[in-house]
Each structure stands twice: as structure tokens, then as C-alpha cells.
């Protein structure tokens, strides 16, 4: 199954019946899959007039308490930024998928990881965070879609799957399990009509009194602290005795893993930390590795964005280097190997 299609089916299996999209390469198969499946299961597939409309349809459906999602690629995600800010400010759960491509502007359509800053720090205006998951295989995309919906509901906030053109377009074997047996999380706040049984619910992000808005934002940030403590996820690969620890997520982590294997064959003690959650960023595992490793090498398909968070986590304990390709270029294991050797000084 193609990554994009696997994402779509996983969302359906997670109980999502409301998809609102707008065509853009390289996520198109996801929407096409939804347009085929949704009508057959009584769900909604709606091709909106724009990414802006699509994310606001998600806002509306999420207000009604259903699992709603949209998907797009980098330029489209910029347009969704407004709606995502409102969704976060209204404490609504929703799933947004970004199958990243090269930027800025129209950029290109080849795989990229240049939206890390946008996803983790600046998706819209205001003080807020969203959950950001970074799968590296088609199977993991499937598993994370389900988790993203669950955590979004639990913490009442938007969640994003930050994939890229490579993961979206590739095929790998995948097992999709239904999660629909899970007990849905109660949403007493949903605007479903009060049926004359309760006072009216209001989904809103406007607070004209600064003290009210500050209190609300502080409450939200208290929730973020809980998430930072409980939801950090990362995979460690051969880090135990590693002198140099690579840090990479998504597509670039696969290349990094190949590079680590090659380096190990040549006797270099290197390992890999692969962040699975980008927000919350897996600071703990990096801090642990900073005690044993002599240095880090962050590998990204960008000019270096996640490396900022790696440096913050490592906090000067050991040097943090960076290697990246951008614009749709994918680094090769050989390039990374060369960079590793340069850092390690060729010493075995």
C-alpha cells in the first residue's frame, strides 16, 4: 500500500468519517482514497474550494465532536495555519497531515523536511502548540494516525502527522488494525445542539479581557507540560556505545540508519536517535545520550531546523553538527558517512 493510502485507511480505522481536502502533490492519493472509501461507509469526503475552507470545515466538524481530518502538502499547510490556530485556540481535536515538499513558495514537489519549524513552532499566530508525529515507515504512519487521533481527543488539541513526499509515495508492507472497538472519548463540550437539556455550548477562541485570555493560555500550557512529560517518543538505534549519535526523523532517519549500518561495518561507533514525536520533542533521550556520546550529528532534508531543538536539549554538553540537503534533494548514506568520518576524524 502506498504511504498516502495507508494514512487514509488508518484514519478510517481510527473512526474518522469526515475528511475535507484540496488537491496538492504529493499527498493526492490520500484524498483520492478517501473519495473512494468514504461514500461506501457513510462518511463525508468533501473537496473544498481551498485549503482554508477545508481546515475550517474540519473546525466545524470537530466542534460537533466527530473525528475530522484534512491533509495537504507544505504550501497548503501554510494556508491552513489560520484555521489550525483557531482550532488550537478553541481546544478542538483534529488531525492534519502534511506530506512535505520543498519550499519556500511554490518550491518543488519532491520530498522535504523544511516545515519542521512551521509544525513545531509557528503553524499559526498566538501561543500554542500542536502534537507533531514523524513516522519513518508506512507501518508507522498507520500506527501514528490512530495514536494522533487518541491523543488529540485526550488533550483537546490538533495533531499533525509530519510526513514527506517519499513516505507518502512509497509502498511497504503494512498491517492495518481496526481501532473502532476502542471506547470513544466523551466530548461533553461538543456543539451538537443542547436538546433543551443543558445550557448552550460555545466553541470559541475570542477572549477580549486580557486576564481571561492569559488564564486560558496558561491552562493550555499547563496541559502542554503534562504532554511533555508523558508523550515524548523516540527510537534509539545502536546508541549504547556510540561516540557519535545521529539525530534524524522521518525519511532522513531511514537514510541515516543505512549510514549508521555502513559506518558500523567499518568499525565506527555510531548510533541513531530517531524522534517520533517532534512536539513534544524527545529532549529526555537526547539528554541521556549527551552523557555518553562525544557528539551529535543532526541529519535533515532542510537547511537545519530540528538541529535547533537538538542543541537546546544537549545544552552545550557536547558538540552538535549538522548535515542536510534541501529543495527536494535526499541525502545519500554515502554523504552522511563522509560527514561522520569528518567529525570522527577518521579515527576508529
Amino acid at each position: 500500500m502506498k504511504g498516502n493510502e495507508a494514512l487514509a485507511e488508518a484514519a478510517i480505522q481510527a473512526g474518522c468519517r469526515h475528511f475535507f481536502g484540496y488537491p496538492i502533490t504529493p499527498q493526492t492519493e490520500l484524498a483520492a482514497y478517501m473519495s473512494k472509501r468514504m461514500p461506501k461507509i457513510g462518511g463525508t469526503y468533501l473537496q473544498a474550494e481551498s485549503e482554508i475552507a477545508a481546515i475550517n470545515m474540519v473546525l466545524g466538524a470537530a466542534s460537533a465532536g466527530v473525528r475530522a481530518m484534512t491533509s495537504s502538502s507544505s504550501p497548503g499547510i501554510s494556508l491552513k495555519g489560520e484555521g489550525i490556530s483557531y482550532i488550537a485556540g478553541s481546544d478542538l481535536p483534529a488531525l492534519i497531515i502534511n506530506v512535505q515538499r520543498g519550499g519556500p513558495g511554490l518550491g518543488g514537489i519532491q520530498p522535504s523536511q523544511a516545515d519542521y519549524w512551521q509544525a513545531t513552532k509557528a503553524l499559526g499566530h498566538g501561543d500554542f502548540q500542536i502534537l507533531v508525529f514523524a513516522p519513518s515507515t508506512v507501518q508507522e504512519m498507520v500506527d501514528l494516525v490512530s495514536d494522533a487521533f487518541d491523543l488529540a481527543d485526550t488533550y483537546r488539541m490538533p495533531a499533525m502527522i509530519l510526513a514527506d513526499g517519499m513516505l507518502g509515495q512509497m509502498m511497504e508492507p503494512v498491517e492495518i488494525r481496526s481501532n473502532e472497538h476502542k471506547k470513544p472519548i466523551e466530548k461533553p463540550w461538543a456543539t451538537t445542539g443542547h436538546q433543551n437539556k443543558r445550557v448552550h455550548n460555545v466553541v470559541n477562541s475570542l477572549y477580549l479581557q486580557p486576564k481571561d485570555l492569559e488564564r486560558l493560555v496558561r491552562e493550555r500550557f499547563a496541559r502542554y507540560e503534562v504532554i511533555k512529560q508523558k508523550e515524548q517518543r523516540a527510537e534509539e538505534y545502536l546508541t549504547e556505545d556510540a561516540d557519535l549519535v545521529l539525530v534524524a526523523y522521518g525519511a532522513s532517519s531511514r537514510v541515516a540508519r543505512s549510514a549508521v549500518n555502513k559506518a558500523r561495518e567499518q568499525g565506527f561507533k555510531v548510533g541513531l536517535v530517531r524522534p517520533i514525536t517532534l512536539w513534544p520533542f524527545p529532549t529526555d533521550v537526547l539528554q541521556k545520550n549527551a552523557k555518553t556520546a562525544k557528539g551529535f550529528l543532526c541529519v535533515e532534508m532542510s537547511m537545519g531546523q530540528m538541529v535547533d531543538d537538538v542543541r537546546l536539549a544537549v545544552n552545550g554538553a557536547v558538540p552538535v553538527d549538522f548535515y542536510g540537503r534541501t529543495g527536494g534533494m535526499i541525502p545519500s548514506p554515502a554523504e552522511i558517512l563522509t560527514k561522520m568520518k569528518e567529525i570522527l576524524g577518521g579515527a576508529q
Binding site: H18, F20, T44, L46, A48, I52, A53, A54, N56, M57, V58, L59, G60, A61, A62, S63, A64, G65, V66, A68, E82, G83, Y86, S90, T191, T192, G193, H194, H200, N201, V202, V203, N204, S205, L206
Partner: peptide, 25 residues
């Protein structure tokens, strides 16, 4: 002011928000 359930939409997006609501409800 309205006693029914209410959702506040971003500027101009009310018909899209209403679309999402109507499709869900």
C-alpha cells in the same frame, strides 16, 4: 446572545465551518 449551541468562526470562514458542522450533524 443566542441560546442554541454556537461556534465562533475565523473571519469569512463561517460557511466552511457550517459545512463541517452540517456534514457531521
Amino acid at each position: 446572545y443566542f441560546s442554541c449551541d454556537m461556534v465562533e468562526a475565523p473571519h469569512g470562514r463561517a460557511p466552511a465551518v457550517a459545512t463541517g458542522l452540517k456534514r457531521a450533524l
